[in-house]
Write a protein that binds this DNA or RNA. Structure first.
Length: 194
DNA sequence: CTAACGATTCGCT
DNA sequence: GCGAATCGTTAGT
């Protein structure tokens, strides 16, 4: 059995969530759930800049049962349900009281492909297996029940396996048209990896 | 309590 | 390209 080599919680406590969203590209996201190891390198992220960011769930200091975990110290999971159907997995960053987070939008499916195909009701491997936040969370079996858990150990953790990001693109974030000016910020990052 | 809607996905046209 | 699926969260009564 593979031994986890997780990034430490301190990694996520950097004050600049945009820097972290870029730096997370190429890091390997892993889950070990129901006895299955699944994961792959992160290839798409979005940064959400706390109370100042109109696109962020915690904008203006909005503190509710759902957003509460965003206010905790960085290094934990923020998982929410969207459209009553799909889970979105985020990494809470920065320190306590600063509700910043990185949304994991896509990974390259490389580890536990058979399990991920089953969870996604798919037959053939292609990039659509883990190509958006909902599908990535489903393939990894990350659900809202896991919100708030630390990310330096199973069932969810990240590793630096030295994967090279050849180049990456910065674009506006997806589906945040309600955010006015902030909808145009180039805080979505899409990587090309080796 | 009620009602509108969302950091999406998939199938059909 | 368009719209349905489907329900917890949110804000307002």
């Amino acid at each position: 059995m593979h031994t986890p080599n997780p990034l430490p919680l301190s990694f996520y406590q950097h004050h600049d969530v945009v820097y972290l969203a870029k730096t997370l590209l190429g890091k390997v996201l892993l889950t070990h759930i129901d006895g299955h190891l699944t994961g792959g390198p992160i290839i798409e992220t979005e940064a959400y800049w706390g109370v100042e960011d109109r696109a962020c769930h915690a904008y203006g200091g909005r503190r509710t049962k759902r957003t509460e975990v965003m206010f905790r110290k960085g290094g934990i999971a923020y998982v929410f349900l969207i459209y009553g159907l799909h889970s979105c997995f985020n990494i809470v960053t920065h320190c306590e009281g600063h509700p910043h987070a990185v949304l994991i939008r896509a990974i390259k499916p490389t580890i536990g492909i058979e399990t991920m195909l089953q969870r996604r009701n798919k037959i053939k491997l292609d990039k659509t297996l883990t190509s958006g936040p909902g599908s990535t969370a489903q393939a990894l079996k990350i659900t809202t029940a896991l919100t708030g858990i630390p990310l330096d150990r199973p069932p969810i953790w990240l590793e630096d396996r030295g994967i090279q990001v050849k180049k990456f693109e910065a674009t506006p974030r997806i589906g945040v048209d309600y955010a006015g000016e902030d909808a145009r910020l180039p805080w979505r990052f899409v990587a090309e990896i080796a």
